[in-house]
Write a protein that binds this DNA or RNA. Structure first.
Lengths: 215, 215
DNA sequence: TAGATTGTTAATCGATTAACAATC
DNA sequence: TAGATTGTTAATCGATTAACAATC
Protein backbone atom coordinates (compact mmCIF):
# COMPACT_ATOMS: atom_id res chain seq x y z
CA UNK A 1 0.00 0.00 0.00
CA UNK A 2 1.33 3.38 -0.99
CA UNK A 3 1.90 5.98 1.70
CA UNK A 4 -0.57 8.84 1.61
CA UNK A 5 0.14 12.21 3.10
CA UNK A 6 -2.91 14.31 3.81
CA UNK A 7 -1.99 17.95 4.14
CA UNK A 8 -4.77 19.54 6.13
CA UNK A 9 -4.26 23.14 5.19
CA UNK A 10 -5.13 25.26 8.18
CA UNK A 11 -7.92 27.71 7.44
CA UNK A 12 -7.08 31.16 8.74
CA UNK A 13 -9.31 32.98 11.21
CA UNK A 14 -9.64 35.82 8.72
CA UNK A 15 -11.29 33.46 6.25
CA UNK A 16 -13.56 31.87 8.85
CA UNK A 17 -14.72 35.30 9.99
CA UNK A 18 -15.87 36.07 6.46
CA UNK A 19 -17.81 32.89 5.80
CA UNK A 20 -21.01 33.85 7.63
CA UNK A 21 -20.99 37.11 5.72
CA UNK A 22 -20.92 35.28 2.39
CA UNK A 23 -23.73 33.11 3.68
CA UNK A 24 -25.76 36.19 4.48
CA UNK A 25 -25.28 37.80 1.09
CA UNK A 26 -26.06 34.57 -0.71
CA UNK A 27 -29.26 34.30 1.28
CA UNK A 28 -30.24 37.76 0.11
CA UNK A 29 -29.53 36.79 -3.48
CA UNK A 30 -31.64 33.69 -3.03
CA UNK A 31 -34.50 35.72 -1.64
CA UNK A 32 -34.17 38.05 -4.61
CA UNK A 33 -34.44 35.06 -6.93
CA UNK A 34 -30.92 35.35 -8.34
CA UNK A 35 -29.78 32.02 -9.73
CA UNK A 36 -26.11 32.53 -10.49
CA UNK A 37 -23.45 35.08 -9.66
CA UNK A 38 -19.84 35.71 -10.59
CA UNK A 39 -17.15 36.55 -8.07
CA UNK A 40 -17.02 39.94 -9.75
CA UNK A 41 -20.69 40.77 -9.20
CA UNK A 42 -20.56 39.51 -5.64
CA UNK A 43 -17.43 41.53 -5.05
CA UNK A 44 -19.24 44.71 -6.07
CA UNK A 45 -22.11 44.01 -3.67
CA UNK A 46 -19.94 43.07 -0.73
CA UNK A 47 -17.18 45.62 -1.18
CA UNK A 48 -14.44 43.03 -1.18
CA UNK A 49 -12.20 41.96 -4.06
CA UNK A 50 -13.29 39.18 -6.41
CA UNK A 51 -9.89 37.68 -5.85
CA UNK A 52 -10.53 37.37 -2.14
CA UNK A 53 -13.88 35.71 -2.70
CA UNK A 54 -12.35 33.09 -4.99
CA UNK A 55 -9.43 32.53 -2.66
CA UNK A 56 -11.69 32.19 0.36
CA UNK A 57 -14.03 29.70 -1.29
CA UNK A 58 -11.21 27.64 -2.71
CA UNK A 59 -9.99 26.93 0.79
CA UNK A 60 -12.95 24.59 0.99
CA UNK A 61 -13.33 23.40 -2.57
CA UNK A 62 -14.12 24.47 -6.09
CA UNK A 63 -17.74 25.51 -5.97
CA UNK A 64 -17.84 27.47 -9.20
CA UNK A 65 -17.65 26.77 -12.88
CA UNK A 66 -15.46 28.54 -15.43
CA UNK A 67 -17.40 30.78 -17.74
CA UNK A 68 -20.51 30.54 -15.55
CA UNK A 69 -19.72 31.68 -12.03
CA UNK A 70 -21.38 30.25 -8.97
CA UNK A 71 -24.83 28.75 -8.58
CA UNK A 72 -26.31 30.72 -5.71
CA UNK A 73 -28.37 27.92 -4.15
CA UNK A 74 -25.53 25.42 -4.39
CA UNK A 75 -22.94 27.78 -2.95
CA UNK A 76 -25.32 28.79 -0.17
CA UNK A 77 -25.88 25.17 0.78
CA UNK A 78 -22.18 24.36 0.64
CA UNK A 79 -21.25 27.26 2.91
CA UNK A 80 -24.02 26.18 5.24
CA UNK A 81 -22.40 22.75 5.41
CA UNK A 82 -18.97 24.26 6.00
CA UNK A 83 -20.39 26.26 8.89
CA UNK A 84 -22.01 23.15 10.33
CA UNK A 85 -25.55 24.45 9.82
CA UNK A 86 -26.68 21.11 8.39
CA UNK A 87 -26.69 19.77 11.96
CA UNK A 88 -29.17 20.66 14.67
CA UNK A 89 -27.57 22.28 17.71
CA UNK A 90 -29.24 22.09 21.08
CA UNK A 91 -28.63 25.25 23.07
CA UNK A 92 -29.07 26.04 26.73
CA UNK A 93 -28.98 29.56 28.12
CA UNK A 94 -27.34 30.13 31.50
CA UNK A 95 -28.34 33.42 33.04
CA UNK A 96 -31.91 34.40 32.24
CA UNK A 97 -31.60 38.17 32.62
CA UNK A 98 -32.64 40.54 29.87
CA UNK A 99 -29.97 39.41 27.47
CA UNK A 100 -30.52 35.75 28.23
CA UNK A 101 -34.23 36.19 27.55
CA UNK A 102 -33.50 38.01 24.33
CA UNK A 103 -31.33 35.11 23.18
CA UNK A 104 -33.94 32.58 24.21
CA UNK A 105 -36.45 34.48 22.12
CA UNK A 106 -34.16 35.03 19.18
CA UNK A 107 -35.13 33.23 16.04
CA UNK A 108 -32.07 31.11 15.33
CA UNK A 109 -34.19 28.09 14.53
CA UNK A 110 -33.83 28.42 10.78
CA UNK A 111 -30.09 27.89 11.16
CA UNK A 112 -30.65 24.75 13.19
CA UNK A 113 -30.19 26.18 16.67
CA UNK A 114 -32.79 25.03 19.15
CA UNK A 115 -33.08 26.37 22.70
CA UNK A 116 -33.78 23.38 24.93
CA UNK A 117 -33.12 24.71 28.41
CA UNK A 118 -32.90 27.86 30.52
CA UNK A 119 -30.98 28.06 33.77
CA UNK A 120 -30.46 30.65 36.47
CA UNK A 121 -29.69 30.82 40.16
CA UNK A 122 -32.38 33.35 41.03
CA UNK A 123 -35.29 31.54 42.72
CA UNK A 124 -37.81 34.17 41.59
CA UNK A 125 -37.22 33.11 37.99
CA UNK A 126 -37.94 29.43 38.62
CA UNK A 127 -40.74 28.14 36.43
CA UNK A 128 -40.99 31.26 34.31
CA UNK A 129 -41.53 30.15 30.73
CA UNK A 130 -40.03 31.54 27.54
CA UNK A 131 -41.36 30.07 24.34
CA UNK A 132 -42.62 27.15 26.33
CA UNK A 133 -39.25 26.44 28.00
CA UNK A 134 -39.31 26.73 31.79
CA UNK A 135 -36.47 28.35 33.70
CA UNK A 136 -34.71 25.77 35.86
CA UNK A 137 -32.40 26.31 38.79
CA UNK A 138 -28.73 25.87 37.93
CA UNK A 139 -28.28 22.97 40.33
CA UNK A 140 -30.63 20.93 38.16
CA UNK A 141 -28.21 21.23 35.24
CA UNK A 142 -26.15 18.07 35.92
CA UNK A 143 -29.30 15.95 35.87
CA UNK A 144 -30.62 17.80 32.82
CA UNK A 145 -27.34 17.23 31.00
CA UNK A 146 -27.66 13.51 31.59
CA UNK A 147 -31.12 13.42 30.06
CA UNK A 148 -30.54 15.83 27.16
CA UNK A 149 -27.95 16.37 24.50
CA UNK A 150 -26.50 19.85 24.90
CA UNK A 151 -24.31 21.20 22.11
CA UNK A 152 -23.93 24.84 23.08
CA UNK A 153 -24.26 26.82 26.29
CA UNK A 154 -24.92 30.52 25.93
CA UNK A 155 -23.51 32.30 28.98
CA UNK A 156 -25.20 35.54 29.92
CA UNK A 157 -24.10 35.86 33.50
CA UNK A 158 -21.79 38.05 35.60
CA UNK A 159 -18.13 37.63 34.72
CA UNK A 160 -17.39 36.43 38.25
CA UNK A 161 -19.33 33.21 37.60
CA UNK A 162 -18.34 32.61 34.00
CA UNK A 163 -15.13 30.65 34.49
CA UNK A 164 -16.56 28.33 37.16
CA UNK A 165 -19.62 27.68 35.05
CA UNK A 166 -17.47 26.92 32.02
CA UNK A 167 -15.48 24.36 33.97
CA UNK A 168 -18.67 22.78 35.26
CA UNK A 169 -20.08 22.61 31.74
CA UNK A 170 -16.95 20.92 30.52
CA UNK A 171 -17.28 18.27 33.21
CA UNK A 172 -20.88 17.70 32.12
CA UNK A 173 -19.77 17.06 28.54
CA UNK A 174 -20.75 20.42 27.08
CA UNK A 175 -17.91 21.53 24.84
CA UNK A 176 -19.03 24.78 23.24
CA UNK A 177 -19.75 28.14 24.83
CA UNK A 178 -21.29 31.23 23.32
CA UNK A 179 -19.93 33.68 25.81
CA UNK A 180 -21.60 37.02 26.55
CA UNK A 181 -19.95 37.46 29.94
CA UNK A 182 -17.55 40.39 30.22
CA UNK A 183 -14.46 38.17 30.38
CA UNK A 184 -12.50 36.02 27.93
CA UNK A 185 -13.00 32.29 28.29
CA UNK A 186 -10.39 31.00 25.92
CA UNK A 187 -8.41 28.91 28.32
CA UNK A 188 -10.92 26.27 29.39
CA UNK A 189 -9.58 22.84 28.51
CA UNK A 190 -11.33 21.10 25.64
CA UNK A 191 -13.87 23.88 25.22
CA UNK A 192 -14.70 25.74 22.03
CA UNK A 193 -15.57 29.34 22.86
CA UNK A 194 -16.97 32.23 20.89
CA UNK A 195 -16.65 35.46 22.85
CA UNK A 196 -19.16 38.15 21.97
CA UNK A 197 -18.27 41.14 24.17
CA UNK A 198 -20.94 43.68 23.27
CA UNK A 199 -19.17 46.39 25.22
CA UNK A 200 -16.03 45.94 23.12
CA UNK A 201 -18.18 46.54 20.09
CA UNK A 202 -19.72 49.65 21.60
CA UNK A 203 -16.25 50.97 22.47
CA UNK A 204 -15.09 50.49 18.90
CA UNK A 205 -18.08 52.54 17.80
CA UNK A 206 -17.12 55.18 20.34
CA UNK A 207 -13.60 55.17 18.92
CA UNK A 208 -14.94 55.66 15.41
CA UNK A 209 -17.03 58.58 16.59
CA UNK A 210 -14.06 60.20 18.30
CA UNK A 211 -11.81 59.65 15.28
CA UNK A 212 -14.35 60.14 12.55
CA UNK A 213 -12.27 60.35 9.45
CA UNK A 214 -14.59 62.20 7.14
CA UNK A 215 -14.58 59.38 4.64
CA UNK B 1 6.36 80.75 9.57
CA UNK B 2 7.85 77.37 8.93
CA UNK B 3 5.81 74.80 7.08
CA UNK B 4 4.66 71.92 9.24
CA UNK B 5 3.74 68.54 7.86
CA UNK B 6 1.59 66.45 10.13
CA UNK B 7 1.71 62.81 9.16
CA UNK B 8 -1.42 61.25 10.58
CA UNK B 9 -0.45 57.63 10.64
CA UNK B 10 -3.50 55.56 9.93
CA UNK B 11 -4.31 53.15 12.76
CA UNK B 12 -5.13 49.70 11.45
CA UNK B 13 -8.42 47.99 12.19
CA UNK B 14 -6.52 45.11 13.78
CA UNK B 15 -5.11 47.49 16.39
CA UNK B 16 -8.44 49.18 17.05
CA UNK B 17 -10.11 45.80 17.55
CA UNK B 18 -7.63 45.01 20.31
CA UNK B 19 -7.91 48.24 22.27
CA UNK B 20 -11.13 47.41 24.15
CA UNK B 21 -9.57 44.12 25.14
CA UNK B 22 -6.58 45.89 26.69
CA UNK B 23 -9.01 48.16 28.46
CA UNK B 24 -10.82 45.16 29.88
CA UNK B 25 -7.67 43.48 31.18
CA UNK B 26 -6.39 46.70 32.68
CA UNK B 27 -9.69 47.11 34.47
CA UNK B 28 -9.27 43.66 35.97
CA UNK B 29 -5.77 44.54 37.11
CA UNK B 30 -7.10 47.73 38.67
CA UNK B 31 -9.79 45.80 40.50
CA UNK B 32 -7.11 43.40 41.71
CA UNK B 33 -5.14 46.37 43.04
CA UNK B 34 -2.19 45.94 40.68
CA UNK B 35 -0.32 49.21 40.32
CA UNK B 36 2.13 48.58 37.51
CA UNK B 37 2.65 45.96 34.84
CA UNK B 38 5.23 45.21 32.17
CA UNK B 39 4.34 44.33 28.61
CA UNK B 40 5.77 40.92 29.39
CA UNK B 41 3.45 40.20 32.32
CA UNK B 42 0.45 41.53 30.42
CA UNK B 43 1.42 39.42 27.44
CA UNK B 44 1.34 36.27 29.58
CA UNK B 45 -2.15 37.10 30.87
CA UNK B 46 -3.62 38.03 27.53
CA UNK B 47 -1.93 35.39 25.39
CA UNK B 48 -0.50 37.90 22.96
CA UNK B 49 3.14 38.85 22.42
CA UNK B 50 4.73 41.61 24.47
CA UNK B 51 5.97 43.04 21.22
CA UNK B 52 2.43 43.41 19.94
CA UNK B 53 1.32 45.16 23.10
CA UNK B 54 4.13 47.69 22.85
CA UNK B 55 3.57 48.22 19.15
CA UNK B 56 -0.16 48.67 19.62
CA UNK B 57 0.19 51.20 22.42
CA UNK B 58 2.89 53.15 20.62
CA UNK B 59 0.46 53.87 17.83
CA UNK B 60 -1.11 56.31 20.25
CA UNK B 61 1.83 57.44 22.31
CA UNK B 62 4.47 56.35 24.77
CA UNK B 63 2.55 55.43 27.89
CA UNK B 64 5.25 53.41 29.59
CA UNK B 65 8.56 54.05 31.23
CA UNK B 66 11.79 52.18 30.62
CA UNK B 67 12.79 49.97 33.49
CA UNK B 68 9.36 50.31 35.11
CA UNK B 69 6.65 49.21 32.72
CA UNK B 70 3.20 50.75 32.61
CA UNK B 71 1.23 52.36 35.39
CA UNK B 72 -2.06 50.48 35.30
CA UNK B 73 -4.34 53.36 36.26
CA UNK B 74 -2.65 55.76 33.87
CA UNK B 75 -2.70 53.37 30.95
CA UNK B 76 -6.33 52.47 31.67
CA UNK B 77 -7.32 56.12 31.61
CA UNK B 78 -5.35 56.81 28.46
CA UNK B 79 -6.93 53.92 26.59
CA UNK B 80 -10.30 55.13 27.82
CA UNK B 81 -9.54 58.50 26.26
CA UNK B 82 -8.40 56.90 23.01
CA UNK B 83 -11.69 55.00 22.88
CA UNK B 84 -13.61 58.18 23.52
CA UNK B 85 -14.97 56.99 26.85
CA UNK B 86 -14.20 60.33 28.48
CA UNK B 87 -17.25 61.74 26.70
CA UNK B 88 -20.85 60.97 27.52
CA UNK B 89 -22.76 59.36 24.66
CA UNK B 90 -26.50 59.65 24.45
CA UNK B 91 -28.02 56.50 22.99
CA UNK B 92 -31.44 55.80 21.56
CA UNK B 93 -32.72 52.31 20.86
CA UNK B 94 -34.86 51.76 17.79
CA UNK B 95 -36.80 48.53 17.94
CA UNK B 96 -37.89 47.65 21.45
CA UNK B 97 -38.20 43.88 21.08
CA UNK B 98 -36.41 41.49 23.36
CA UNK B 99 -32.95 42.48 22.22
CA UNK B 100 -33.78 46.18 22.27
CA UNK B 101 -35.04 45.85 25.82
CA UNK B 102 -31.93 43.95 26.81
CA UNK B 103 -29.76 46.74 25.46
CA UNK B 104 -31.87 49.37 27.16
CA UNK B 105 -31.35 47.53 30.41
CA UNK B 106 -27.69 46.84 29.90
CA UNK B 107 -25.38 48.64 32.25
CA UNK B 108 -23.20 50.65 29.91
CA UNK B 109 -23.45 53.72 32.10
CA UNK B 110 -20.03 53.30 33.65
CA UNK B 111 -18.49 53.71 30.20
CA UNK B 112 -20.42 56.90 29.62
CA UNK B 113 -23.27 55.54 27.52
CA UNK B 114 -26.67 56.80 28.54
CA UNK B 115 -29.93 55.53 27.07
CA UNK B 116 -32.12 58.58 26.51
CA UNK B 117 -34.86 57.30 24.23
CA UNK B 118 -36.69 54.19 23.05
CA UNK B 119 -38.57 53.98 19.77
CA UNK B 120 -40.74 51.43 18.04
CA UNK B 121 -43.56 51.30 15.54
CA UNK B 122 -45.72 48.87 17.48
CA UNK B 123 -48.57 50.81 19.16
CA UNK B 124 -48.92 48.23 21.94
CA UNK B 125 -45.48 49.21 23.21
CA UNK B 126 -46.26 52.92 23.45
CA UNK B 127 -45.71 54.27 26.93
CA UNK B 128 -44.09 51.11 28.25
CA UNK B 129 -41.20 52.17 30.47
CA UNK B 130 -37.74 50.68 30.79
CA UNK B 131 -35.56 52.15 33.50
CA UNK B 132 -37.82 55.17 33.53
CA UNK B 133 -37.59 55.77 29.79
CA UNK B 134 -40.92 55.54 27.95
CA UNK B 135 -41.24 53.87 24.57
CA UNK B 136 -42.15 56.42 21.93
CA UNK B 137 -43.58 55.87 18.48
CA UNK B 138 -41.00 56.17 15.71
CA UNK B 139 -42.76 59.11 14.08
CA UNK B 140 -41.97 61.18 17.15
CA UNK B 141 -38.27 60.75 16.51
CA UNK B 142 -37.73 63.87 14.34
CA UNK B 143 -39.19 66.08 17.05
CA UNK B 144 -37.25 64.20 19.75
CA UNK B 145 -34.02 64.64 17.78
CA UNK B 146 -34.56 68.39 17.72
CA UNK B 147 -34.95 68.55 21.48
CA UNK B 148 -32.22 66.07 22.44
CA UNK B 149 -28.65 65.41 21.52
CA UNK B 150 -28.38 61.88 20.12
CA UNK B 151 -24.92 60.41 19.64
CA UNK B 152 -25.70 56.79 18.89
CA UNK B 153 -28.71 54.87 17.62
CA UNK B 154 -28.83 51.18 18.44
CA UNK B 155 -30.85 49.42 15.75
CA UNK B 156 -32.60 46.25 16.79
CA UNK B 157 -35.18 45.97 14.08
CA UNK B 158 -35.93 43.74 11.08
CA UNK B 159 -33.35 44.02 8.31
CA UNK B 160 -36.01 45.28 5.90
CA UNK B 161 -36.31 48.55 7.85
CA UNK B 162 -32.67 49.04 8.77
CA UNK B 163 -31.44 50.92 5.70
CA UNK B 164 -34.40 53.33 5.58
CA UNK B 165 -34.06 54.03 9.27
CA UNK B 166 -30.34 54.67 8.88
CA UNK B 167 -30.96 57.20 6.14
CA UNK B 168 -33.62 58.92 8.24
CA UNK B 169 -31.26 59.05 11.21
CA UNK B 170 -28.59 60.61 9.06
CA UNK B 171 -31.00 63.33 7.98
CA UNK B 172 -31.80 63.99 11.63
CA UNK B 173 -28.14 64.53 12.42
CA UNK B 174 -27.46 61.17 14.06
CA UNK B 175 -24.14 59.93 12.72
CA UNK B 176 -23.42 56.70 14.56
CA UNK B 177 -25.24 53.39 14.45
CA UNK B 178 -24.79 50.32 16.60
CA UNK B 179 -26.37 47.87 14.22
CA UNK B 180 -27.95 44.60 15.36
CA UNK B 181 -30.08 44.16 12.26
CA UNK B 182 -29.24 41.19 10.09
CA UNK B 183 -27.78 43.31 7.30
CA UNK B 184 -24.62 45.36 6.76
CA UNK B 185 -25.05 49.10 6.93
CA UNK B 186 -21.66 50.28 5.81
CA UNK B 187 -22.71 52.36 2.88
CA UNK B 188 -24.80 55.08 4.48
CA UNK B 189 -23.25 58.45 3.68
CA UNK B 190 -21.58 60.18 6.61
CA UNK B 191 -22.54 57.46 9.06
CA UNK B 192 -20.25 55.60 11.39
CA UNK B 193 -21.51 52.05 11.82
CA UNK B 194 -20.58 49.15 14.05
CA UNK B 195 -22.24 45.95 12.87
CA UNK B 196 -22.80 43.31 15.54
CA UNK B 197 -24.36 40.34 13.73
CA UNK B 198 -24.97 37.87 16.52
CA UNK B 199 -25.89 35.14 14.08
CA UNK B 200 -22.49 35.46 12.38
CA UNK B 201 -20.94 34.87 15.76
CA UNK B 202 -23.10 31.83 16.40
CA UNK B 203 -22.19 30.43 12.99
CA UNK B 204 -18.50 30.80 13.73
CA UNK B 205 -19.09 28.83 16.91
CA UNK B 206 -20.89 26.21 14.88
CA UNK B 207 -17.92 26.09 12.51
CA UNK B 208 -15.55 25.58 15.43
CA UNK B 209 -17.69 22.74 16.72
CA UNK B 210 -17.77 21.06 13.32
CA UNK B 211 -14.03 21.46 12.84
CA UNK B 212 -12.93 21.01 16.41
CA UNK B 213 -9.20 20.65 16.13
CA UNK B 214 -8.43 18.83 19.38
CA UNK B 215 -6.18 21.63 20.50
C1' DT C 1 -15.91 27.86 -31.23
C1' DA C 2 -15.28 32.31 -28.70
C1' DG C 3 -16.15 34.49 -24.45
C1' DA C 4 -16.41 34.38 -19.75
C1' DT C 5 -14.94 33.28 -15.46
C1' DT C 6 -12.97 30.16 -12.41
C1' DG C 7 -9.01 28.01 -9.76
C1' DT C 8 -4.42 28.81 -8.62
C1' DT C 9 0.25 30.57 -8.77
C1' DA C 10 3.04 34.60 -8.19
C1' DA C 11 3.65 39.40 -6.50
C1' DT C 12 2.59 42.74 -3.20
C1' DC C 13 1.28 44.57 0.80
C1' DG C 14 0.55 44.87 5.69
C1' DA C 15 0.75 43.03 10.21
C1' DT C 16 3.32 40.52 13.63
C1' DT C 17 7.45 39.28 15.84
C1' DA C 18 12.26 39.80 16.98
C1' DA C 19 16.03 42.48 18.27
C1' DC C 20 18.30 46.09 20.41
C1' DA C 21 19.63 50.81 21.44
C1' DA C 22 17.69 54.33 24.40
C1' DT C 23 16.65 55.48 28.97
C1' DC C 24 14.40 55.37 33.39
C1' DT D 1 25.35 52.70 38.76
C1' DA D 2 23.35 48.26 37.07
C1' DG D 3 19.13 46.15 35.80
C1' DA D 4 14.93 46.34 33.70
C1' DT D 5 11.95 47.43 30.29
C1' DT D 6 10.38 50.54 27.00
C1' DG D 7 10.07 52.61 22.21
C1' DT D 8 11.34 51.71 17.68
C1' DT D 9 13.74 49.77 13.72
C1' DA D 10 14.49 45.67 11.08
C1' DA D 11 13.17 40.88 9.80
C1' DT D 12 9.70 37.65 9.16
C1' DC D 13 5.51 35.91 8.36
C1' DG D 14 0.89 35.74 6.58
C1' DA D 15 -2.90 37.65 4.15
C1' DT D 16 -4.52 40.12 0.20
C1' DT D 17 -4.37 41.30 -4.53
C1' DA D 18 -3.00 40.66 -9.27
C1' DA D 19 -2.35 37.88 -13.14
C1' DC D 20 -3.21 34.26 -16.11
C1' DA D 21 -3.57 29.53 -17.72
C1' DA D 22 -7.22 26.11 -17.47
C1' DT D 23 -11.74 25.07 -18.78
C1' DC D 24 -16.67 25.32 -19.00
Amino acid sequence: MKGVIVLEKEISQAVIRRMPRYYRYLNELLEAGVERISSNELSARMHVTASQIRQDLNNFGGFGQQGYGYNVQYLYDEIGNILGLNTTHNVIVIGVGNLGQAIANYNFGKFGFQVVGLFDVKPSLEGKEIRGIPVRMLDELPEFAKQNKIDIAALTLPKENAETTAVMLSSLGVHAIWNFAHVDLDNVEGMVVENVHLSDSLMRLSYSIANYDHK
